[in-house]
Design a protein around this nucleic acid. Structure first.
Lengths: 335, 335
DNA sequence: TTGAAAGCGCTAACAG
DNA sequence: CTGTTAGCGCTTTCAA
């Protein structure tokens, strides 16, 4: 039934020959453009199917000068990035674009991930929480539209969550539950960390809890959470509530608490950040600050396309409000 | 400094003009091929850098007829797939190939993911635990080399773990700890589920525990684990140990146990499968059957390349031995 | 060591 | 509605 040689895939010309029409007709039919008769259309599609023909996207793009490709640089190990990519696929398709994924792994850095996308002639880049220094990002921007997600930088379009507000939500929630000794485990130099730190401080001040402000160095991983939590528990007056940079780090904190015989939330409340699928695991059931993935990805794709289509205004930062998701790791202060 | 117009990226011709040489020379230099003088090479590289030139991979492959691209179809939500992709990047690069990722999401099925890759003219496909029916996979195979990872099928090259052996390891480990009522929560029709079920049964038989065999319908998610675990606990003689289809499902089981007041491993032992990063979370610390990701991915890439280079032998299945990773969720039977 | 010319598979612009 | 032609950016002959 299938005649295709595994080595040389069928071309448009092969289909045209088999259907007994010109290449142009086949081209039209394959792209679902008007301008071909119903009968012709049928014959072409039949021939294409029999040959197992798939249009060569490279040649197609080379000729049309466009790729309709949005490059996405993301950390495949980051639960939150995975959520973003999932939503980006949908947003891109809704806008008639494809996604080209390029993952950052422990063995593959951002530069490498970006270079690949550039060679694929993506029309814009969407970078998730990039670590690339601002000046390098700015340089990239002169080559093609760059939309940065989940990190604030100058010199590029940015879509990010109002991270400071996120910590306001967390602290206020804990405050209403009667907590006073509320600590923050931060994310160091990670994207968003500075804002969350600031939000924490502001919210504590606003609640009249300035003298209870305590910020401990954390990070993005369970490991970082573990270390920070130990430091907190070793104190004479450990906090009754902890806000943590992200969900992953928060699971490390939970682990230390539970192993140390502390009950959550009876003895200590914990709030994470991201509402990544980690937080939703029944076993973890983490109260957390949700970023609005749906909105952020839609905005990111829309912004990228505006740029592609020539909008030549100043770079803009769009800030999306976060939302508190109350689950099982926060409860009334008992001390 | 940068002259590049954001709209039209510099071409090889631009670089040639700027360096004052022919396109051929630039082509050679960019590919690091011999045949250009040291001084010329320097001038070309300088011009390319100043222009911010990146070779157009589409045009390049269109002309050379090769893409050196391995397409990867994977479930971005699957922790284990993420581990495989990470390792595949390394394996591919070591062999001089690039990866083209195409994710399966709740909103993007395998067919869609595969079609995209075909249009990108990948030279081979590596599919992680594909759900595509065998006949469709066989059809694909007539178009290009297909290597299937983590699922047994006829009609394609397969790299998979000896899943039955994996459950032997798990059951034997539990047996040595004195457990008798060892249950299995399965993965339904998921890739590997049948083998794991069979391995469980065989191992129970081999340990003289045939009359304790109990298989409960599970699945791939926490949710499935939750439901299955409840069913098990509702019995008059609940099992003292449970082997679970995968790590993710096992976390659901753990949750039900802990909420039901059961201590792990004192009251019930649990063994997962995959050793995905989920299992390694300190908070979960799951005893699990590890698949040898490093070996599997190296073999997958190697096999794909053999095919690309023309090896035209019968499809082969390579089975990689699993390994038991003992962590904190298994302990001596106390009943 | 270098350059000129042809053409990969496709789409766009035009002609019939 | 259908066919012809040119050329996207690159690599690959082949000739100088």
């Amino acid at each position: 039934m299938q005649m295709a040689d595994a080595d040389s895939r069928p071309t448009l010309a092969d289909v045209a020959a088999r259907a007994g029409v010109s290449k142009s007709l086949v081209s039209l039919v394959m792209r679902d453009e008007p301008g071909a008769g119903a009968e012709t259309r049928r014959r072409v599609l039949k021939a294409a199917d029999e040959l197992g023909y798939h249009p060569d996207s490279r040649a197609r793009l080379l000729r049309s000068g466009r790729s309709r490709l949005l490059g996405v640089v993301f950390g495949i190990q980051h639960a939150f990035h995975v959520d973003l990519v999932t939503a980006l696929y949908t947003a891109a398709r809704d806008s008639g674009y494809e996604l080209a994924l390029s993952a950052v792994t422990p063995d593959r850095d951002e530069t490498e991930a970006t270079t690949g996308l550039l060679q694929d002639r993506c029309e814009a880049l969407i970078m998730l929480g990039p670590q690339t220094p601002a000046h390098a990002l700015a340089r990239l921007t002169t080559r093609l539209p760059v939309v940065v997600l989940a990190r604030g930088v100058r010199g590029a379009d940015v879509i990010r969550t109002a991270d400071a507000d996120g910590l306001h939500l967390a602290v206020d929630h804990l405050g209403r539950l009667g907590h006073q000794r509320i600590a923050h485990i931060d994310g160091g130099r990670a994207p968003g960390a500075a804002d969350r730190r600031r939000g924490y401080r502001e919210a504590m001040d606003a609640s009249g809890l300035s003298r209870h402000v305590q910020i401990v160095a954390g990070g993005l991983t369970e490991q970082a959470g573990t270390t920070a939590a130990r430091a907190l528990l070793d104190q004479s007056h450990p906090p009754t509530a902890i806000t943590v940079f992200n969900d992953r780090c928060a699971t490390g904190v939970l682990d230390v608490l539970l192993r140390g015989g502390k009950r959550v939330p009876e003895d200590v409340s914990v709030v994470g950040y991201d509402d990544s699928h980690l937080a939703r695991l029944a076993h973890i059931n983490l109260t957390t600050v949700a970023q609005d993935v749906h909105t952020m990805t839609k905005l990111a794709v829309a912004r990228a396309i505006e740029r592609i289509e020539g909008a030549d205004v100043a770079h803009r930062t769009i800030v999306v409000p976060p939302q508190l998701v109350i689950r099982g790791t926060t409860g009334p202060a008992t001390t």
